[in-house]
Design a binder for these strands. Structure first.
Lengths: 110, 110
DNA sequence: TTTCTTTATCGTAATATTGCAATATTAAAT
DNA sequence: ATTTAATATTGCAATATTACGATAAAGAAA
């Protein structure tokens, strides 16, 4: 085997797992942090920010895009990347609804 | 290649990526949700809750444990699992400090 | 039009993950 | 002491991820 049995779990569980997976690499965290820091869309520059080769960065950007966390608009011969507002807030909600469940816990024997 | 270049990124970036990685599988989300739901430590039962074979579940539990998100105390011939309070709150902080950066964003050209 | 710049894709090697059958381990129960 | 029950480990096959060199694609600049 080697493939995740996604169909055995709920949509929500898979959605959250997918968002987590998109964030499960330091380079992708770095990309997200950079896009948050520059406070605007950024055309080019991302490759220069990361200690990885251009094809590798391109691949990470593709994964973040397919997970919906970022958007990439073509702007001339470069591409403008930015955080995808709607999905970013959705991701935050997903995580928070899990984290919030802890707060209502009463006991904890350990 | 194939191995993540962790040493090229900051400790924080790697820590968040590792937490995300631990959560990057629907079975592990399901385990966490179950432990949050039962509102206490649970001895046994976890394998029955999941649509996966016992060794597979054991492996997922091991990963959650090594990421620090859960604890497993041996209790007789079974094991008592529960959310690791300290690390769970730490994980929440990690994610929130990233999500909070979005709120202070002023512009967004896309 | 040729060249340059920027980004994406292909191909491939190295490594990691997922899943489970078989087996080991450990303690309780008989 | 043997058996039973619960969990972990081993070994292995299938698949996924990570990384990058080489190359393609497409618009900008010359």
């Amino acid at each position: 085997m080697g493939a995740t049995k996604t169909d055995h779990f709920t949509i929500k569980q898979n959605e959250l797992a997918n968002i987590a997976k998109a964030m499960a690499h330091p380079a992708r965290i770095a990309i997200i942090e950079f896009l948050l820091k520059v406070d605007t869309c950024i055309c080019g520059d991302i490759v220069d920010e990361l200690p990885l080769a251009q094809p590798t960065v391109s691949q990470h950007l593709k994964e973040l895009k397919s997970a919906g966390l970022i958007k990439g608009d073509i702007e001339g011969n470069s591409v403008c990347y930015c955080i995808d507002k709607v999905n970013w807030l959705k991701a935050q909600k997903h995580f928070n609804s899990l984290f919030d469940k802890y707060k209502s816990k009463k006991s904890n024997c350990c």
